Amino acid sequence: MSSSSWLLLSLVAVTAAQSTIEEQAKTFLDKFNHEAEDLFYQSSLASWNYNTNITEENVQNMNNAGDKWSAFLKEQSTLAQMYPLQEIQNLTVKLQLQALQQNGSSVLSEDKSKRLNTILNTMSTIYSTGKVCNPDNPQECLLLEPGLNEIMANSLDYNERLWAWESWRSEVGKQLRPLYEEYVVLKNEMARANHYEDYGDYWRGDYEVNGVDGYDYSRGQLIEDVEHTFEEIKPLYEHLHAYVRAKLMNAYPSYISPIGCLPAHLLGDMWGRFWTNLYSLTVPFGQKPNIDVTDAMVDQAWDAQRIFKEAEKFFVSVGLPNMTQGFWENSMLTDPGNVQKAVCHPTAWDLGKGDFRILMCTKVTMDDFLTAHHEMGHIQYDMAYAAQPFLLRNGANEGFHEAVGEIMSLSAATPKHLKSIGLLSPDFQEDNETEINFLLKQALTIVGTLPFTYMLEKWRWMVFKGEIPKDQWMKKWWEMKREIVGVVEPVPHDETYCDPASLFHVSNDYSF
């Protein structure tokens, strides 16, 4: 037999072997998808029940369902290793196997995995149920939502704001400190077992692309791009910072340095994350009609249902689908009040099986009107990829998912749209002054938050990498806050605090 014939037969044999492996992989994935749908849905439903009704029974049910899901994933991840990716030609099959071969938290021992889940659930519970009591009246206690958040959004009393700011960190942050220390250790162990340098590197892996249509993007490039983007917006932020400082000097004349940092408790919310609520103090042309339409919403008797129905109309107007019937029947759109304790931070849920929901303790404000559009943007994205195989139902990356939500809320905030839905009067006219007011309001929300987020994530990356010793977490946190964000702590904090974890995203294990 000629050498060319042998070569042809060899190629046929290799192709047949690849085809056999690929067919086996497809069969394996079909079985996995069928089983995963049910187990993931049960786990998601148990998590939803806990988040909307925080009880010991629900946390136990959530843990049990989560353990079943984790055990299943660990088993299936091991089985998926049997299919070598280099022998799979079908890109859809390869991407699913690649996702499943990534072990995630299931790489930890059973004891450590359970401990990590306990830590995460405990931190979430402390954050959502933590109360601050009035020292003069111990029976008068406030949760973060709505009590403390209400103070931080609306109060102009310097000392009341300081009390709310400090009490939240003292009551909740200190409880979270030992848990967060354990969390860092276990998450790093999980990341390294998955061949990442640390948990920050694991997060950045979400943005990594290897040879898809000839395109590559590394975790290191992400760090470079983040640094570059921050340097680009820094001059604009510094101008905004100086303008806000001048306006705060008028409101709090004896508390603000004309050349120094801004006190952290005066920036519009509990964390200084969004400066939106400073608009009334900083509006350049106050004689113009108010483009913050909160009062109009209240006057027109809007409620949470109306807010979300208007958001749905907005999405339908640009060619996107209505929310499902189940969305309206199962979402929690208002604070249950004293009936039950719930996690009030707005979140969009894709539970699986076409079950999409939003959890939000909606208030009738323009801020929540825009947040509703943001969260519904997440749901629209979830619905758009719902037909994909189970392992591919995700956003391109976390940042893109947020961008989908944010672009919709930005569009909904324009005076033209607000006028079209009757929240600005029919005779409202846009001119240079109203446009400047609008742009300032947008800058308070968007530009003001960028250094906050950059600095927070930089601190977390450094902590996970071990570049900040545990006994210097708070020292470095406030050094970076002053240097990068231009914000100063109103009272000193020692290493018993854990100020970063006083933010939902940190205590609940979300990256930005």
Rank of each mutant, 00 (worst) to 15 (best):
T20A: 08
T20S: 04
T20I: 10
T20Q: 10
T20M: 10
T20C: 04
I21W: 13
E22M: 07
E23R: 03
E23N: 03
Q24T: 00
Q24A: 15
Q24K: 15
A25K: 14
A25Y: 14
A25D: 14
A25C: 06
K26P: 13
T27K: 01
T27S: 02
T27Y: 00
F28D: 15
F28M: 13
L29E: 10
D30V: 00
D30E: 00
K31G: 15
N33C: 01
N33I: 13
N33Y: 15
N33H: 01
H34Y: 14
H34L: 15
H34P: 00
E35W: 11
D38R: 14
L39P: 09
F40W: 04
F40S: 06
F40N: 01
Y41I: 15
Y41Q: 13
Q42A: 14
Q42F: 14
Q42C: 00
Q42N: 14
L45W: 12
L45T: 10
L45H: 14
A46V: 12
A46S: 07
A46G: 10
A46Q: 11
W48P: 09
W48H: 06
N49K: 07
N49P: 11
Y50M: 10
N51M: 05
N51E: 09
I54Q: 10
I54L: 09
I54C: 10
E57S: 03
V59L: 06
V59H: 01
V59F: 05
Q60I: 05
Q60H: 08
Q60L: 07
N61F: 06
N61W: 12
N63W: 09
N64W: 07
N64I: 07
N64V: 06
N64D: 10
D67H: 04
D67R: 03
K68G: 11
K68V: 11
A71R: 01
A71E: 06
F72S: 11
F72Q: 10
L73S: 09
K74Y: 03
K74S: 05
K74H: 01
K74M: 04
E75V: 00
E75W: 00
E75K: 01
E75T: 00
E75H: 00
Q76E: 05
Q76K: 05
L79Q: 12
M82F: 05
M82Y: 03
Y83C: 02
Y83W: 12
P84N: 10
P84T: 12
Q89E: 01
N90R: 00
L91Y: 03
L91S: 02
T92S: 02
T92Q: 00
V93S: 12
V93I: 06
V93D: 12
V93Y: 10
L95K: 01
L95G: 04
L95A: 03
L95E: 05
Q96L: 11
Q96P: 01
Q98P: 13
Q98V: 01
Q98F: 02
Q98D: 01
Q102C: 06
Q102W: 01
